[in-house]
Nucleic acid binder design. Structure first.
Length: 907
RNA sequence: GGGCGCAUAGCUCAGUGGUAGAGCGCUACCUUGACAUGGUAGAGGUCCGUGGUUCGAUACCACGUGCGCCCACCA
């Protein structure tokens, strides 16, 4: 006996343990493999709504494919998340009053991180279980695992040997808080209120030139002033100390007289050249740009092509260095302190022209939140431009397809303008770069120290002492290998052979660049088929939206509007949360989460539960070998027909990644067709005398309910599994049972139209009753007016149903409607409801006239069309015919309406 | 500066070259033997604007307006 309601808190852990215990999530059987690799959550992470959406969708796909008989592997795992994890552990050390990582030393610190990982890392995997994720947990991988680390080393070495990975000294985005380089993608450019400081750089030897200050309409100068300086402007005054030149555009006549001369770099008291370069925009600012090669990406380019010296101003923490080119007063000070001091000192020398308020785009580290400083350092780079070629081509060819397709444009745009990928990080937690240096600085890249040694000895003789590169790799370097490293590569494992390439990647658009693009590059470069052709890691990439709050605002920690999925699971159950996410996962749309919505879908699962209780108390059970095509009752054939269409819609939705369509198809069928109509229509039979008719309806009801459980299972795995198990003794869990196919249903248009006739009649009568304020409980009489033989037959067969659902006490026939009766026009049939004494003639007349007006308006529109020669000539014949049919139907109804109104006049 | 997306009922969103839909909310009625986490009925829409294509446009195209997002080195 089913309980009064479903208790997710009790049932979910039990059901999940059952699934795992029965190895339901392991790939099995002879079916074609179906593989998804999970976007590995950070080991430091906890489940947020984005994860909930992402993993629910993957789970829907996996459960659906598993039921289709595929050998499904949903490969789980976690990312070591270099910066994030190091930060967490460092904070913890500080909090506990321990010595910091530098004091501890590298080895002890890393050991500490591992310890942290074992104790508190990866709680997100348990949270994914609570969500119902059907990952094969026995295969859980971690990017710092031995196997995955081996893959990283192999890839690094091979890319190096192929010349696709190299060490270079160039400007890099430097995070002064974490004291590491980061890649372009880890920089967030934000608009902030800043200033534009205009300085004078005096010309050498007191030289002067005539600078135009007023122009006529033709743009010719009309007024000049004599200047002994060049005016520059900057948003970062402190960097002036590193200026190597001032540049102007070669076409800029204003500065032509002084190009090639020198000006004084104030404060630094150096003379720097005034050069001509294409870079400055004469129309912006003063048209003259200070060139700080070591601290600005544009200036770096200018400095390089003009051979301008670059002065490194800051250390790894953003403090000014103790070097001769930095005036003593600024040494050791923080960059923002220096900024303030520089402005004051320039002003004190009378060289500050003005300070403008200005919105500026400023780069911030995405993890640290501090202002990023361009720094000139040695780093390792991947030649992404080269690797991107094939990755672009494969998408162009359609070997990998984005869904929705417009994301391919985003992908192309980035890939076609890709910059070298800085992969080294000055951190300790991560894959240490497999490069060793000889005392003279020459570098040896190899998979092991021994191999590096062997190489070095060729150049340096035996016994050369090597030191290993201190740096680790970008976290995304190992993530890029995820689709094949998790399957065992570089070993030739059976899993790799079976499950690579994967079938689809499911992710949000915010990591297309970070992850999708890089997996494409690495996958194509390292994974080849038997003919040595590159294999894409996934033929499809489904990009879903972001989860936003009920107001459409992006959920974020800083806004504090985040909703914890675990809270919702505890409040409403995992099924309700999952269904909410699926029902809103329309392509190209964000998903809004609100309690109200989740509550609504919790109600849906309750509804289903109660339908099952109803089935149970009516002893509905389907024989194991039940053959739907053997069903004879019209009601049976109708619901089997409806169920078949629902099954098609759900499958089409999931196949097409239209999760919202799939969810609404099953929702509508289960609630609005099965519960609202089938169960109601079945009641008279189920509660009537025993016999073959009742047996069949019981069997069909149970059978269709089971199909609903199956169709709903990918979306609401828990409640469906619970009901599946509770309703009958079964050989297997629902999670591994078969997905319903067309053969499981019948297609019967005649049955469909007959039952729909009944449904429409009941609805029409109810509507009239409500409008006429007939008390809901009142039983009334219904008179069929001159019924056709079809009407007689149909009504005759379903009198019980109509009587029960429309509350009709007695049925009769008459040639003409009795006086004072309300008329229900239903297709070609007219029914009268004699409500004498109850009827409000005026209200009834109003009701009928309202519809008359509506129909006349519709007919007017159709007539206009049909009178249009062009329409009749050019519109497709079936459209014209359709319009004529509609007109006839309206016309017939109108006649009946008018007759009914006429009849009221007698009252 | 480039690129992408969105605009349909009070709200959140489906949708289709010919007849406008759902959920929630709202209104009225209903404790009917599965379910009040429910049932029945109902109100509610210039489908952003303008122009074009078409016999016909909410849908296709162009422009405009408004909103959102991503990328980008204007010092």
């Amino acid at each position: 006996m089913l309980n009064k309601s479903f208790e997710p808190a009790e049932a979910e852990p039990r059901l999940y343990a059952d699934w795992e215990g029965s190895d339901a999530f392991k790939p099995s059987g002879e079916g074609a493999p179906y593989t998804i690799v999970i976007p590995p959550p950070n080991v430091t992470g906890s489940l947020h709504m984005g994860h909930a959406l992402n993993n629910t969708l993957q789970d829907v796909l996996c459960r659906y494919q598993r039921m289709q008989g595929r050998s499904v592997l949903w490969q789980p795992g976690m990312d070591h998340a270099g910066i994030a994890t190091q930060m967490v552990v460092e904070r913890q050390l500080a909090k506990d009053g321990n010595e910091d990582r530098r004091a501890m030393g590298r080895e002890a610190f890393i050991e500490r991180v591992w310890q942290w990982k074992e104790e508190s890392g990866g709680q997100i995997l348990n949270q994914l279980r609570r969500l119902g994720a059907s990952c094969d947990w026995s295969r859980t991988r971690f990017t710092m695992d031995e196997g995955l680390s081996a893959a990283v080393v192999k890839v690094f070495v091979q890319l190096y040997e192929e010349g696709l990975l190299y060490k270079d000294k160039r400007l890099v985005n430097w995070d002064p808080q974490f004291e590491t380089a980061i890649s372009d993608l880890e920089v967030e450019n934000k608009e902030v209120d800043g200033h534009f400081w205009h300085f004078k750089y005096p010309l050498e030897n007191g030289e002067t030139y005539e600078f135009p200050v007023a122009f006529d309409d033709a743009g010719e100068p009309t007024e000049w002033e004599t200047r002994d300086y060049i005016s520059i402007a900057t948003t970062r005054p402190e960097t002036m100390l590193g200026d190597g030149a001032v540049a102007v555009h070669p076409s800029d006549k204003r500065y032509a007289p002084i190009v090639g001369k020198k000006c004084l770099l104030p404060l630094a008291d150096r003379y720097i050249p005034i050069i001509a370069d294409e870079y400055p925009d004469p129309d912006f600012g003063s048209g003259a740009v200070k060139i700080t090669g070591a601290h600005d990406f544009n200036d770096y380019q200018v400095a390089r092509r003009n051979d301008i010296p670059m002065y490194v101003l800051m250390d790894s923490k953003g403090r000014f260095v103790d070097e001769p080119h930095v005036p003593e007063a600024y040494r050791g000070k923080d960059r923002f302190e220096v900024r303030k001091a520089v402005v004051e000192d320039i002003d004190a020398r009378g060289l500050l022209i003005q300070i403008e308020d200005k919105k500026i785009m400023q780069p911030f580290g995405d993890r640290s939140g501090v202002v990023i400083e361009p720094m000139l350092t040695d780093q390792w780079y991947v030649n992404a431009e080269e690797l991107a070629k094939d990755a672009i081509a494969k998408v162009e060819e359609g070997a990998t397809r984005f869904i929705p397709d417009n994301w391919s444009k985003t992908y192309y745009q980035w890939m076609r303008n890709i910059e070298p990928w800085c992969v080294s990080r000055q951190l300790w937690w991560g894959h240490r770069i497999p490069a060793w240096y000889a005392p003279d600085g020459s570098v040896y890249v190899a998979e092991t120290e021994d191999a590096a040694c062997a190489k070095a000895e060729v150049d340096h003789g035996a016994g050369v002492a090597l030191t290993r590169d201190e740096d680790v790799l970008d976290t995304w370097f190992s993530s890029a290998l995820w689709p094949f490293s998790t399957l065992g590569w570089p070993e030739a494992t059976p899993e790799l052979a079976k499950h690579y390439p994967t079938n689809v990647l499911v992710t949000a658009f915010d990591i297309i660049f970070f992850w999708v693009a890089r997996m494409m590059m690495m996958g194509l470069h390292f994974m080849k088929d038997d003919n040595a052709a590159a294999v894409v890691p996934f033929p499809e990439v489904y990009i879903h939206g972001l989860v936003v709050d009920e107001k459409g605002q992006k959920m974020s920690k800083s806004k504090g509007n985040g909703v914890d999925p675990i809270d919702l699971i505890e409040k409403y159950g995992a099924d309700a949360l999952r269904f909410t996410l699926c029902a809103q996962a329309g392509q190209g749309r964000n998903v809004r989460v609100s309690d109200q919505r989740v509550e609504g879908y919790r109600n849906f699962s309750t509804k289903l539960w109660n339908a099952a209780r109803f089935a149970e108390m009516n002893e509905c059970a389907a024989p194991a070998d039940f053959d739907p095509s053997s069903a004879e009752e019209t009601l049976s054939r109708w619901i089997l027909d409806e169920a078949g269409r629902c099954a098609e819609d759900v499958a089409a939705g999931v196949d097409g990644y239209r999760f919202n369509d799939a969810a609404s198809a099953i929702y509508r069928f289960a609630w609005n067709v099965f519960c609202d109509w089938h169960l109601e229509l079945a009641k008279p039979i189920l509660q009537g005398p025993d016999g073959p008719q009742k047996d069949e309806v019981r069997a069909v009801t149970a059978y269709v309910l089971d199909k609903i459980l199956a169709l709903l299972h990918p979306f609401m795995p828990f409640v469906t599994e619970e009901l599946w198990g509770a309703r009958a003794a079964r050989a297997e869990h629902l999670v591994v049972s078969a997905w319903p196919t067309a053969d499981d249903f019948v297609s019967d248009a005649a049955a469909a139209s007959e039952i729909n006739w009944v449904i429409d009649l009941v609805t029409a009568v109810r509507s009239v009753r409500a409008e006429m304020n007939v008390p809901a409980g009142a039983k009334i009489e219904m008179v069929a007016i001159a019924p056709s033989s079809e009407t007689q037959t149909c009504l005759g067969r379903h009198k019980d149903l109509v009587g029960r659902l429309a509350r009709i006490e007695t049925f009769s026939d008459a040639a003409a409607p009795p006086k004072g009766a309300v008329q229900v026009i239903h297709g070609e049939a007219v029914f009268a409801l004699p409500l004498a004494g109850v009827i409000d003639a005026v209200a009834e007349k109003t009701r009928l006239e309202k519809e008359t007006v509506k129909i006349e308006k519709e007919m007017g529109g159709i007539d206009k069309k049909l009178a249009n020669k062009k329409f009749v000539e050019r519109a497709p014949a079936e459209i014209v015919a359709e319009q004529k049919e509609r007109r006839e139907a309206y016309s017939a109804r109108l006649i009946k309406l008018k007759a009914a109104i006429e009849q009221l006049a007698d009252l």
